[in-house]
């Protein structure tokens, strides 16, 4: 008699365990990627020694031709910008401490199917860039791949030179 209940319990336990393994249909992957830019200051002291550190700037940014602001006077050390998936370039107007920089990146796109739950992902490979403005003194092109790694792609440097 006990054997009957033990086997029944076993059947239900197995059923519940395997039910719990079923897919819950939630998307758990990033299906949107953005270009990432970090801000740095390079300070050269009176003795000629250079130190680099993060730079917090007041940022206002939007895509050229778009009315929607991406950042509206936000103090930050880095920004994420959405690249246009349907063109091979994107231009952004970026105010750094009220100084306008016009930044254009040229890239190639690649569409990747992720899963039934998450759909499609577009990733970008940056080929070149242009910048015009007076705040950014130099740019480091760190990583040409805009993907789910969310790595920094560019660093914008502003120099402070205290040499006599």
């Amino acid at each position: 008699m006990y054997k009957k209940y033990i086997i029944l319990l076993l059947v239900f336990t197995i059923f519940l365990i395997f039910s719990a393994c079923d897919n819950d249909e939630q998307c758990r992957e990033d299906n949107y990627v953005m270009l990432r830019i970090g801000f740095y200051k390079s300070v050269i002291d009176s003795l000629g020694r250079q130190t680099n550190s993060n730079n917090t700037l007041i940022v206002t940014a939007k895509g050229a031709g778009s009315d929607s602001l991406l950042y509206d006077s936000v103090p930050t050390q880095n920004i994420n910008l959405p690249l246009n998936k349907f063109d091979n370039y994107s231009t952004f107007n970026i105010f750094l401490n009220d100084t306008l920089e016009t930044f254009t990146v040229f890239y190639t796109t690649k569409d990747e199917y992720l899963s039934f739950e998450c759909g499609y992902l577009t990733i970008f490979s940056i080929d070149s860039f242009q910048i015009s403005g007076s705040y950014v003194d130099s740019i480091s092109f760190i990583n040409n791949s805009v993907d789910t790694q969310n790595a920094e792609n560019f660093s914008f440097h502003h120099h402070y030179d205290y040499r006599q």
Binding site: S66, N84, K85, D87, Y113, G119
Partner: peptide, 18 residues
């Protein structure tokens, strides 16, 4: 068949369906 695969670009207001 996998249909209605949407490539959306909400910021630049462009969309495509594959």
């Amino acid at each position: 068949n996998i249909e209605n695969v949407q490539i959306t670009d909400n910021y630049w207001n462009r969309n495509n369906i594959i």
